[in-house]
Design a protein around this nucleic acid. Structure first.
Lengths: 217, 217
DNA sequence: CGACCTGTTGATTCTGCTCAATCAACGTGG
DNA sequence: CCACGTTGATTGAGCAGAATCAACAGGTCG
């Protein structure tokens, strides 16, 4: 905890989007300690008692669930500046794991009216993202899914040109409802179409954003 | 409005599940008129200004969205006793249409702390349903999807044996991310496996619930 | 250096889509 | 009453896209 306290909020906080204003307000109102997690750490497991919300300061988190046969579905990736931990019942239906080395700030449950409204806003934002994702999983082809994913990441990382992928191909696959082989092939296809360029395995330059957008249908 | 006022709440309200207590409280706190809609009516369109929430008294509602090519994804069906109309931004991202003749009660936006909490609870319930649905669309086969759908409907209709389908095959298809031909074939397959029996096109008897559950993986 | 993990690429299989025909239920009008 | 058109559901045949199985390359770490 002493180590964690040495992290300075302003230095670590990487603004992602319009969440900032809201979250900064939430933090000022209810400051909390920063917790560090290693890559691949479990923040909470399926069935754990639900409690506080978590704000991602840096790193990234995947929310996932396993089926009986061991198939995995990732319902969302949580990037810096975004919040997770919502539950309808008292227990977590999904598991939260860090994708890479990650810093989280705990947000205690809302008590006053204002923070209840803020929580609602954040929950609704999550609902919208989930519904958006339903569209992808239900009606899009592999190319469309990958293109949507890259554009979404670019937007949320506030960088129109370069996308950094904190997660590996299997994570992307389980998020998009594909196999990792198909993800790899599809990224290759987008590269061959000159829509993207792979600076490295984890860093992708978007060469033709309009082209990618038309692909998403 | 005079006609609508003639509907008696207690007579029309068909409790579906645990929503009841919460919703009854909400209604008592903020009573509202009942609105009638024909089959296939648009309650609000994509882009419409978001406002009140809607409680389904009887009938059913589909929340859907179209892609540029005319593909449709239904994100949820709303059954009696359930609420819809949540939006993160000021405008509706999805369109709400009635599936059959439907009665809705308007719930004005929350103003006090208690109703804000209630709204949050309902929103979180919607978020859970959407995440549950992500699992279906991302990782299940056609048989698993249809089996899950039937079991889900049975639960929400509070009838373990008989499922009544208010919607047609194309609606089920757009909800499950399949074509209506595949839905039809798959229902036929479940019938041939003696897991269900079609009393009519719209009424399905669940003969082997455990068998259906094991199918869902 | 070798073991291991991640990612890429190839060959084959299979599920579900597309196109198309048929059927049943219903309403309309002669 | 029946011929006709319409709409929704079912069924069939062939095809396309993604999954599966498998081999291999590049990087990292012991």
């Amino acid at each position: 905890m002493l180590l964690q306290a040495s992290f300075d909020h302003d230095a670590m906080h990487q603004p992602a989007n319009a969440n900032d204003v809201l979250m900064d307000a939430a933090i000022k109102a209810r400051p909390a300690a920063l917790s560090l997690y290693d890559e691949g750490a479990t923040i909470y497991a399926q069935g754990d008692k639900a409690g506080p919300l978590f704000l991602v300061e840096f790193g990234s988190v995947r929310l996932c669930r396993m089926t009986a046969e061991g198939r995995r579905q990732i319902s969302a990736f949580v990037l810096p500046g975004e919040v997770f931990g919502f539950e309808a019942s008292g227990n977590h239906a999904f598991q939260a794991e860090t994708v890479d080395c990650t810093g989280l700030r705990l947000l205690p449950p809302a008590c006053d009216a204002q923070s209840a409204r803020d929580t609602l806003t954040l929950a609704l934002r999550g609902l919208m993202q989930a519904q958006e994702h339903l569209l992808v999983l239900g009606r899009q082809s592999a190319v469309e899914r990958v293109a949507s994913f890259l554009l979404d990441l670019a937007t949320r990382q506030n960088d129109d040109q370069t996308v950094y992928l904190p997660m590996q191909r299997a994570d992307i696959a389980d998020y998009l409802g594909l196999t990792f082989e198909t993800v790899s092939r599809t990224i290759g296809k987008l590269r061959d179409m000159n829509l993207i360029r792979l600076a490295s395995v984890r860093e992708i330059r978007l060469l033709d954003i309009e082209g990618l957008k038309t692909l998403c249908a």
